[in-house]
Design a protein around this nucleic acid. Structure first.
Lengths: 337, 337
DNA sequence: CTTCGTTGCTAAACCGAATTAGCACAAAGG
DNA sequence: CCTTTGTGCTAATTCGGTTTAGCAACGAAG
């Protein structure tokens, strides 16, 4: 600290009362009898001196720091994670808390270390967020303070979990095709993300496909073809290029995310297919990319901001029941369907 | 705190020494004489009990919290800001600090409020980061602790400032064209970002253009045409579409950023121009987009990670001289030139 | 004139560490 | 035998708040 801060003792001295009295007045406790005269003198002195309580000192006594920790495996590799942090920060700020943010890069040692560092600073609660993996093994030291799991699940965890409602997201995507009458020859690009690393597909992919299949089936339609691949532009390009070059004629594409759709657009454009005239496209994520594409891409919003916000709000409300909170995923309708 | 933490007093009792002795041993102070026997008993007890010092309590006494605050106007609106935070977090962690992250959305009231909240928690230092504006008016309460300015400047600020070396970045972009012999009919798309809001252009744009002009001039060339516009895909598209449709034949494009280049690619592709065969393209930012484009886009890296890291490292080194630290900007050569 | 209740305030303890000042004891020196 | 010099440790204070326990003054009731 460069400039010395005003302490409670100085306020008390200026107001001509004891530290005790000053503390009672400033913390607004009404169960202690303080004359209105003394109250005014204290408030006045605090105001004039620009007093701000030292939260570190207060926390030592009250065991409450008004501080929350957010531990994430990766905050920057995905461009979306920033929105999670923003949601968490804003919810924390609205509740008068400040947020420690840490990144573990998926390293369990770093993870334990960072959680310890936060506990050493007496955080009131923690958000444990994961961007890729869904089934997470939790570091053991997490147990010693209230925790919300964000974007991941763990069978032995007894507490609240916040997840995007991927199943409903899948339904949303399919509904757009049904409503537009584009249920002929639907291809899923990226689909369940069944790759050598994950032969059963990944969590988000499976739920999205389940949701989409459900809605298409109800409309008397279905998915003509699945292309399982990693969710990156190059694979989206390759998948759609192969499809077209092998003489298949997709009427609609459900792309696993905007990056895949981006690759798909490139392949379609190179082969002279029009979106949405020849081929309708829906996707997931609704990143900036979706609005940059020509025509703008209809994409199911991945509610990162809301996820971060909801996680922190559960902690603020002290709602720690072991419950799964699903955050809605809605389609942002643009021009690609 | 769910489970009670072990305190120094308990460690001392277990080891059969005073709190004072335990404190000396555990903080590794050698100026006090403690027998090796007592030392071992203390270390042993601490180990067995799983003792971790309460940093809140320690901070109260030492006035050092090992905590740094990062205040930014926006962390999520630009997808790159996450990298700044990551750099800052990693540097902080390497130095045994934890990072408070806050976002002000550019609102001066929120800004003051958040800085106060951080000061109330006794942060050792602050990073004040700005993503868009370059000339920032600083909140008055910033003055009361060590500060590094990140990505912005302020004439009356007396302390270190960390900025990307935009001038050198501009040179890098032009050098790529010179080396590839693509200095014929060079067009700058986005250029200095001279718009009604900023008639003189923006800081980054001006420096990049200055750097590019310098290198081209040295090679006996120059920039044939400038298209001043906002740095978004639609304007990049429009600019290049107009250029081609009006019969001009650009040989190279220096795009203001990857989003502009993305728009430019769309216009080029629609009109059947090949990259880099017909038109060479260089850009700035080197975002994920640059590698997704076909062909991958040569782009000057905006060193966000390094910016965040450098800012925190200045604070850790306690190097608070009023100096401007320029972080290098290098070209990532891909296939578009 | 005591007793009681109320009002208005404060002394002192406490949170968990770091730190200053100093005490008891042993060995060495004169 | 007395002083000096180390050695090895601890009591007490401090940081800046919160909180418990209790005290003085005063009016009203008995």
């Amino acid at each position: 600290m460069a400039t010395a801060r005003v302490t409670l003792a100085e306020v008390a001295r200026t107001a001509g009362v004891s530290r005790t009295t000053a503390s009672f007045v400033l913390s607004g406790r009404t169960d202690m009898r303080i004359s209105t005269d003394a109250q005014h003198r204290v408030l006045d002195a605090a105001e004039r001196l620009g007093y701000r309580p030292n939260i570190t000192a207060r926390s030592l006594r009250t065991q409450v720091t008004n501080t929350i920790g957010l531990v994430s495996d990766t905050i920057a590799t995905t461009q979306y994670a920033g929105q999670v942090i923003r949601g968490a920060i804003e919810a924390a700020h609205a509740g008068g808390r400040l947020l420690f943010v840490a990144e573990t890069a998926g390293n369990p040692d770093v993870e334990s270390q960072l959680i310890d560092e936060m506990l050493d600073r007496q955080v009131d609660a923690l958000v444990y967020a994961v961007m890729y993996t869904r089934q997470a093994r939790l570091p053991p030291n997490l147990g010693s303070c209230p925790v919300v799991l964000l974007n991941c699940i763990n069978d032995s965890f007894e507490g609240p979990v916040v997840l995007p409602d991927e199943l409903e997201g899948g339904r949303e995507a399919a509904r757009a095709l049904v409503e537009a009458g584009r249920t002929e020859r639907v291809y899923a690009i990226g689909a369940r993300h069944r790759t050598p690393d994950a032969p059963d597909g990944i969590y988000a992919g499976c739920l999205r496909m389940d949701g989409a299949e459900e809605v298409l089936a109800a409309a008397g339609a279905g998915i003509t073809g699945y292309v399982e691949c990693a969710w990156e532009p190059e694979y989206g390009y390759e998948a759609v290029a192969n499809l077209l070059d092998s003489g298949q004629h997709p009427g609609s594409l459900i792309c696993a995310n905007d990056r895949v759709a981006f690759g798909a657009y490139q392949a379609l454009q190179e082969r002279g297919r029009r979106v949405p005239g020849d081929v309708a496209v829906v996707s997931f994520d609704d990143s900036a990319l979706a609005s940059w594409l020509r025509p703008p891409l209809s994409s199911v919003v991945l509610p990162h901001y809301e996820l971060g916000k909801a996680a922190v709000n559960l902690l603020l409300d002290n709602d720690l029941a072991p419950r799964t909170h699903l955050i809605p995923m809605r389609l942002d309708r643009k021009e690609s369907v």
